[in-house]
Design a binder for these strands. Sequence first.
DNA 1: CATGAATGAGTTTTCATTCAT
DNA 2: AATGAATGAAAACTCATTCAT
Lengths: 216, 216, 216, 216
Amino acid sequence: MSTRETAPAADRVRDPQRTRAEILDVATSEFAANGYAGARVDEIAAKTRTTKRMIYYYFESKQGLYLAVLEQAYSVIRSLESGLDVEHLDPLAALRELAELTFDHHESHPDFIRLVSIENIHGAKHLAQSEMLPGLSAPVLDVIGRILERGRAAGVLREDVDALDVHMLISSYCVFRIANRHTFSTIFGRDLLDPGRREHYRTMLGDLVVEHLARR
Amino acid sequence: MSTRETAPAADRVRDPQRTRAEILDVATSEFAANGYAGARVDEIAAKTRTTKRMIYYYFESKQGLYLAVLEQAYSVIRSLESGLDVEHLDPLAALRELAELTFDHHESHPDFIRLVSIENIHGAKHLAQSEMLPGLSAPVLDVIGRILERGRAAGVLREDVDALDVHMLISSYCVFRIANRHTFSTIFGRDLLDPGRREHYRTMLGDLVVEHLARR
Amino acid sequence: MSTRETAPAADRVRDPQRTRAEILDVATSEFAANGYAGARVDEIAAKTRTTKRMIYYYFESKQGLYLAVLEQAYSVIRSLESGLDVEHLDPLAALRELAELTFDHHESHPDFIRLVSIENIHGAKHLAQSEMLPGLSAPVLDVIGRILERGRAAGVLREDVDALDVHMLISSYCVFRIANRHTFSTIFGRDLLDPGRREHYRTMLGDLVVEHLARR
Amino acid sequence: MSTRETAPAADRVRDPQRTRAEILDVATSEFAANGYAGARVDEIAAKTRTTKRMIYYYFESKQGLYLAVLEQAYSVIRSLESGLDVEHLDPLAALRELAELTFDHHESHPDFIRLVSIENIHGAKHLAQSEMLPGLSAPVLDVIGRILERGRAAGVLREDVDALDVHMLISSYCVFRIANRHTFSTIFGRDLLDPGRREHYRTMLGDLVVEHLARR
DNA sequence: CATGAATGAGTTTTCATTCAT
DNA sequence: AATGAATGAAAACTCATTCAT
């Protein structure tokens, strides 16, 4: 990968929004694939129809770009969470449904999971700098909260588990499957994303949640 | 960080074992703290009583050093696993004990968890290059396997869950708590390593395993 | 030679063609003078009005620069060869003229001869990587070919010597005089480039060619 | 190639002469193959049954080793030259014989040719430092000298060509064939060492010499 | 004589960032 | 908004040579 700009001038676009979005998309893949330090501004620019200068124009610095990538990634997940609708199900079924939807979400957004891993490597210091993210609690917590409320009122759920713990339980399972896939497969020879075992893992998660939350 | 070698020549020792070990230890912290690309060979050398040159003498390259770090980290965990002794407990108690010991292990080896995260960012490509690690299944699997056998024979455990799934369940929980601590705390304001909640999480894990494995 | 860039920022020009050309010229001298491994990128940069960084910007690597130097050196020689005009002379005279022009060419392009020697030390492996050079037969061969044809038709030249052998004969003589000058002089005390003996050597070459090619 | 010493201690020899000779042999190949700057002391040591320390013990420095290599290479050639015996042939036949023996010599000592090329790259500065080589005129010159004398006395040879020019003529042809083999083959697609054309080149050389020296 | 370990100075290469147009 | 050229600082890596045993 040369440092020289080689983008074909021909198909350069003059649509700022689009240019910004394209940079962000490419940067997402690159950061997710290589980590913060491992990603190359040059490489990101090369995979775009713009030039490096534009990256600095829109995002100021590599850090700025990375933060924008992070913010967008969280936004996408948040809006997916906002679309969750499990109110029509009974509490235990709702929990299972929620867990399984999270399972699906994570599987279809591996870049997000990778970015979160990367951000944790850096002690979440970039995330902390964000003006929009920290504290902006996830919609999913409210969803879980409402289910727990309903379930407790109906006497079918335990009283001593809070929404954040439920979220942690579900996340840990779903995140591990994506985030640790490679070492797991290398060490144990089992691909956690093997389509043939997907249903098994999905059900297992639902079972775990239900078993743990159901009042005995 | 200067390029000049600044290590005090005075206290350099002529102890290869020690020199190698010291480099490896420092490198472990540095890679764990900064990722592969983010770690600096210069910085590692500076925190050692040797010089950068010795790193290349013993490990050939930055990659070689990283791989050695990875291999040592896995070895440490493996030998801890080998020391597990839960044979004297009844199957369900043994599973809980095992889960809780894993919980403890992970908590006291955050660098290992971070290295594994980092390695997954790179698709486990370094791990795959190792001649000792891949395929060398973990002792813990045998431990789990024996518990499952005993439990099934005694009729107290489910028949349809295999050792690797149990390991995955335990790992995902324990790993998440360490690996995703920072973003979790930044987003949700709850520190997963808060000593005051440690017992809660530890018990919760044991419960999860027991609830999932116990025959109904 | 320090690692610090010391080129005066004042007279840096923004003329890519010129920058590239200047690097190439300096590099030609340096490689010719010190060999591939002996040449220093730092030194080349220092003798330029640019910085080391620009060498990598334009040529990617030391090897890339060396190859560019080699390609340019061959191009220069090729275009000189293309300018050869000996069609108006009778075959034997044309051969002598050609030999003597080659003699002159080589004498005035010692760097080219040195680069060729260097490249041979490396088994021509860089040359082989070139996309423009290998196979691109030299114009001089056609010139020789046409003379031989004419000479055979006229019955004044031998039939059993081909153009490539003629070229080899001329080259070996002209190249040796330049390439082996130093050891020859050190061992035998005779400087092959002594201006006072130049005419002698030039005539001797012409004689050799004519004596060898003339039909008896 | 690692910097670490890995020579099997088992078969180390305690024969100084032999150790020295072995180092010299390996160094000859390495310098011939990679040039002075390109050769690695580490690599030379590794291909020997000794260690690097011995190289410095016997030869003081890389330069010292290189000079020893050069001196030995010239000595070998000199003693081959000393063995030349063409006194029993008539002058022209003797000259042809001499040329052809040189042709053979060079072909079977490519490393010598390469070393000479390398030394010329460095302006013969190492050779000049030698206490044994410079000035020590080659035996072959005397051989040529005696042939010329005999030939002139017999009236069969030209009067105006001296021994050193004859030597230069023969050398240039024989050296070029070996030294420039690689670029020649890459550019023109003809291997000058093709066994099938060996006799052709050998005869051609003899012809050249005879044609040039014979009195008309 | 022999050797594994160690070293300092240098050498190539990389990378985020900025400038002139 | 856009761009090819340029840059400084630093990063990885190398190599001849020496030391302690």
